[in-house]
Design a protein around this nucleic acid. Structure first.
Lengths: 316, 316
DNA sequence: CTGTTAGCGCTTTCAG
DNA sequence: CTGAAAGCGCTAACAG
């Protein structure tokens, strides 16, 4: 017996030869006809398509990949799927990819649990994808290099440097804008809840937003106190816990700029825990445009996340 | 030239033969050694592993799939990824699958936009996955049958009938419980915001929760008024809009049970729009255990979504 | 325990 | 425009 010949119990799977035989043409012609290649006469193509439909023929993706070297699959690298920004980008990307005939393979890397997190292992992507979309995952130079060594196009959304295909917010600008907004409302003592900060990547979203905050304050003649910033880990509970720490140390703060809406909601929760009224006692601003922001009176700088997932140029 | 021989520019890709040659064994032995099969001596395995590592060898998934008939990939079928329940299940499932060496392929079907939605097309999954996990997507009998015809294991989370491998909440019970809770607080005029209702599937989560609401009311001697229920489309804005319609028609309602936390938040937004205080003027209860529920004083019946994604038995 | 060998089911030259 | 044929890179009998 040869491998792989175990027939699927409930289904007689048709191969390209069956179609060729039934249509009275060669397998090469079937292949060309079904993939819409030129060099096939209209009537031949039509007959092949008809026969294929009758037989319920669907090409084997593994066989096609092996023979062609293309997988018609894009790898989605992301730290989380259950966060607002990420799930929206992923959903937008998957829909767009499927529309153009590509599959979306999901790879998550939890960057919050382990610090420093384990490096992205490119080997799982080896010969498995035709392209890689990195969603909101700040990578080290070594990681980028290892991904590039895979020899497939690499694109970024929400993070990534100028030398790559990138769709992202101007994070520096957003941070500055948020800070300026609070200053315009009369605040001068403005705290900052950042995501996972890492000194290595000055271009990562939290780092850029942080710089925006620093420069926004300085532009108003305020020298940011390093003690005014805490790490909220990009989630609600992290934002809440870090805000408590922040306000314990600096009860004088009258406003807080959080790097994401989810952390901003944590800030609001913490404020409530402490009996503070938002925005009377404490103003809060975030970044994202989270659907639930309105529910809690959150001010936010919004970004079109699913649009960003969509906007990725197809890589072929 | 043969197909697929286009070398990746930046990388000389090693094949199994290179490893075999370098290790002084046959390709079959390399294959066995690297996959951890028995019938390989410890020292041979060790040498093969070492050589493979040195050469940076990673097997081609398409070649392995074609030869073995297995893809080591599970298809995740879901209507959305940007909703609380779904993203949590997907994230849990992806992590668990990767840990056991499986890839997660994402397939979304937007069931809200089109009514009735287009049927799930099984051909995209044909020979592409070793198993299918349906996440919160109520399928028709015909769809289930077409998926089963693929000849791979099928599992459900959040929906699915008893005759399948299923992980889900007891939705009927949850609906009854939520209703009973409101009744115990003295409410008798209790509205219901459901998700996408479809008469065909009495076992779908919204339908079962709806039944729980009906029976919960009846158990207290209250006859549910069909006008007390509206469709909130499982999202915040849908919950909000439908609540306005509901309260326009039935301002006498003092409590609302929503089939999901996201819709419940929409209910709260609508209440605020109308100047109603929650819970003084209107009590609201949802189902999910959404992280943000606390922020708005939402009562909820929680379910461990990422745990449900994890709990799927591996299919091999 | 290990090697030999025949495919898995396609795609792509190359020749007509 | 179409067919023949040679692989793509592995896995799984089978024989030793």
């Amino acid at each position: 017996m040869t491998p792989g010949s175990g027939e699927q119990s409930s289904l007689v799977t048709q191969g390209i030869d069956d179609v060729a035989k039934a249509a009275g043409v060669s397998t090469a012609t079937v292949s060309r006809a079904l993939r819409g290649l030129p060099n096939v006469s209209a009537k031949t193509r039509q007959r092949v398509e008809e026969v294929a439909r009758e037989l319920g023929y669907v090409a084997s993706p593994s066989a096609a990949s092996l023979a062609s070297g293309r997988t018609r699959t894009i790898g989605l690298l992301t730290p989380w799927v259950n966060r607002w920004f990420f799930s929206n980008v992923i959903e937008g990307a998957e829909r767009t990819l499927r529309r153009v005939g590509y599959d979306a393979l999901l790879y998550t890397f939890d960057i919050a649990r382990e610090q420093p997190r384990r490096a992205v292992d490119p080997s799982v992507l080896h010969r498995r994808v035709d392209g890689i979309l990195v969603v909101g995952l700040p990578l080290s130079n070594a990681e980028v290099a290892s991904l590039e060594a895979l020899g497939v196009p690499l694109a970024f959304v929400g993070t990534g440097r100028d030398n790559h295909l990138t769709v992202r917010l101007d994070d520096y600008d957003a941070g500055q804008c948020a800070t300026a907004h609070l200053i315009s409302r009369g605040h001068r003592l403005i705290g900052h809840v950042t995501g996972t900060p890492d000194e290595e990547h000055s271009w990562s979203p939290p780092a850029a937003r942080h710089s925006g905050w620093v420069d926004g304050l300085r532009a108003a003649g305020i020298e940011p106190n390093p003690g005014w910033e805490v790490n909220g880990n990009f989630d609600v509970q992290g934002g809440r816990a870090s805000t408590h720490a922040l306000l314990d140390a600096h009860p004088e703060l009258t406003a807080i700029f959080a790097s994401s809406d989810e952390m901003a909601m944590g800030v609001i929760l913490a404020a409530r825990d402490r009996g503070l009224d938002v925005p009377r006692d404490l103003s809060v601003i975030g970044i994202d445009g989270h659907d639930l922001g309105e529910l809690v009176g959150l001010t936010t700088i919004s970004q079109d996340a699913s649009g960003q997932g969509h906007r990725r140029p197809s890589c072929c």
